[in-house]
Simulated scan of single mutants.
Amino acid sequence: MIDESLWNWEHVWAALPDMLLAFVKVTLFVTIVGSAIAAVLGLVIALVRRTAPQPISGIVTFVMNFIRMTPLVVQLLFVYYAIPTMPGIVVGILVFGVHYATFMAEVYRAGIESVPKGQWEATTALSMSPSRTWVAVIIPQAVRATVPALGNYVISMFKETPFLVAIAVMDMVGAAREYGAGTFRFTEVFIVAGVLFLIASYPTSLLIGRLEKRLVY
């Protein structure tokens, strides 16, 4: 029998509704929307760095590296206080999206460089326009090569959503912390939060693996 001073199921059931609500409304929502922004913006950054004139490419590269080397929580706090009229959850979505876009841009770059030289030469021989070359030939092959790494960044974003508490956005871990502060029972709620993260992350990793196989074969 478990000592109730160490573990009490009543506290689990009491905290679980608020934790699940925060999980859906904040943790999942920020991850899904932020990942979509990161995936699209990351590809745009990679294309600009590859095709834009050197001055523009250099500026984009500098900004990208600056964002990558700055802690995520610092970026959240800066934007939150710099634009006080913007809701915290919007700040979180934008900052997460832009932050991870800089990492995904490097993944896309590697994917583009992995496209065989013969593919580029074939598009030239067929007199394909640059836009047609990118859309029909290069980008599809680059995406196939980058799916696992992109998926890993989505999972990383998901696990970093607790940083939202720094800008007063109550995610699942924040809800757990709030319950623990009111009852002095932190063990149950933090273990449950960890289990929920695991339950959500593991199927995602399996889905990414299946998607990778489908794109390859």
Results as ranks from 00 to 15, higher is better:
residue 77 L to F: 13
residue 98 V to S: 01
residue 85 T to M: 08
residue 215 L to W: 14
residue 8 N to R: 00
residue 22 A to K: 03
residue 208 I to D: 05
residue 55 P to Q: 11
residue 34 G to Y: 11
residue 146 T to L: 07
residue 42 G to P: 02
residue 115 V to H: 11
residue 202 Y to R: 08
residue 115 V to L: 10
residue 173 V to E: 09
residue 89 I to H: 08
residue 29 F to K: 06
residue 205 S to L: 13
residue 189 V to H: 02
residue 55 P to E: 14
residue 35 S to W: 04
residue 82 A to E: 06
residue 30 V to S: 06
residue 186 F to E: 02
residue 24 V to K: 02
residue 22 A to I: 12
residue 92 G to H: 08
residue 85 T to L: 10
residue 39 A to Y: 11
residue 110 A to C: 03
residue 197 F to G: 04
residue 105 A to S: 15
residue 137 V to L: 12
residue 206 L to M: 14
residue 190 F to G: 02
residue 65 N to R: 11
residue 24 V to N: 01
residue 181 A to T: 09
residue 140 P to N: 06
residue 146 T to A: 14
residue 168 A to D: 13
residue 53 P to I: 12
residue 212 E to A: 01
residue 61 T to I: 04
residue 172 M to T: 02
residue 57 S to A: 15
residue 196 L to P: 00
residue 184 F to D: 11
residue 111 G to R: 06
residue 101 A to P: 03
residue 13 W to C: 00
residue 117 K to D: 15
residue 189 V to A: 03
residue 215 L to G: 03
residue 50 R to V: 12
residue 201 S to N: 03
residue 152 N to Q: 13
residue 26 V to D: 06
residue 80 Y to I: 06
residue 135 V to R: 15
residue 71 P to G: 10
residue 15 A to H: 01
residue 85 T to R: 09
residue 212 E to P: 01
residue 1 M to F: 14
residue 149 A to P: 01
residue 196 L to N: 01
residue 177 R to N: 15
residue 198 L to M: 14
residue 123 T to W: 14
residue 57 S to I: 04
residue 143 V to Q: 06
residue 75 Q to M: 12
residue 200 A to P: 00
residue 67 I to G: 02
residue 15 A to C: 05
residue 151 G to Q: 07
residue 28 L to S: 02
residue 149 A to D: 08
residue 103 F to V: 05
residue 138 I to N: 10
residue 211 L to N: 01
residue 15 A to E: 01
residue 154 V to I: 15
residue 60 V to S: 07
residue 190 F to T: 03
residue 7 W to K: 01
residue 66 F to Q: 09
residue 124 T to Y: 15
residue 108 Y to L: 07
residue 114 S to H: 10
residue 78 F to M: 14
residue 52 A to E: 14
residue 25 K to D: 10
residue 79 V to E: 09
residue 180 G to H: 09
residue 113 E to I: 01
residue 179 Y to A: 04
residue 201 S to L: 05
residue 116 P to I: 09
residue 21 L to Q: 11
residue 185 R to S: 03
residue 11 H to T: 01
residue 106 E to D: 12
residue 61 T to H: 14
residue 207 L to D: 10
residue 152 N to I: 09
residue 2 I to E: 00
residue 216 V to P: 00
residue 106 E to S: 03
residue 139 I to V: 11
residue 82 A to S: 13
residue 131 S to V: 14
residue 31 T to F: 14
residue 161 T to F: 15
residue 200 A to L: 12
residue 217 Y to S: 11
residue 75 Q to W: 13
residue 109 R to L: 12
residue 160 E to L: 07
residue 85 T to S: 11
